[in-house]
């Protein structure tokens, strides 16, 4: 018999498939911190990790992720280009920008391109919880 791992939705109290989260960040240190923080909310979450923008564009369109966190300053393709291309490919999953670039101009550009949230680094449990609430998770 197949074992189906489930999570309990905070809002609905129903059973959903396991959370799958895309993390796009060139820093393994940043990815590890984020995974550790997300695991406090979703202990069984699985992650699709991408270390640069090109990898993200190659991998993510084929993945059914619940949401993506996307860094801006990355090698090969920066996060703004990744966001633009993913939306052009009709990629539907929510994309939250998670970056050290705190400029209002950057936030405006990203919102116009279809991101649904903006989290400033460094992350904290409070910031991630707020992000998850905003995502309705």
């Amino acid at each position: 018999m197949a074992v189906v791992r489930v999570r309990i939705s905070k809002q609905l109290g129903n059973l959903d498939p396991i959370m799958k989260i895309g993390i796009v960040d060139d820093s393994s240190f940043a990815r590890d911190r984020l995974k550790s923080c997300l695991n406090r909310f979703f202990p069984d979450a699985s992650f699709v990790e991408c270390g640069d923008g090109k990898v993200a564009l190659k991998r993510l369109p084929g993945e059914e992720v619940d949401f993506i966190t996307l860094d801006i300053v990355m090698p090969k393709l920066n996060g703004i280009w990744v966001l633009k291309h993913l939306r052009e490919f009709d990629f539907q999953a929510p994309i939250v920008i998670l970056t050290a670039d705190i400029q209002e101009g950057t936030q405006t550009i990203c919102r116009e391109l279809g991101c649904c949230g903006f989290v400033e680094k460094p992350i904290s449990e409070e910031k991630i919880e707020s992000m998850l609430v905003d995502l309705g998770l």
Partner: peptide
């Protein structure tokens, strides 16, 4: 590197804003 990126982003981003 990530720490430097965050700190530089804070100072330069504040300046830009």
């Amino acid at each position: 590197l990530e720490t430097g990126n965050i700190m530089i982003g804070s100072v330069v981003g504040t300046l830009a804003n």
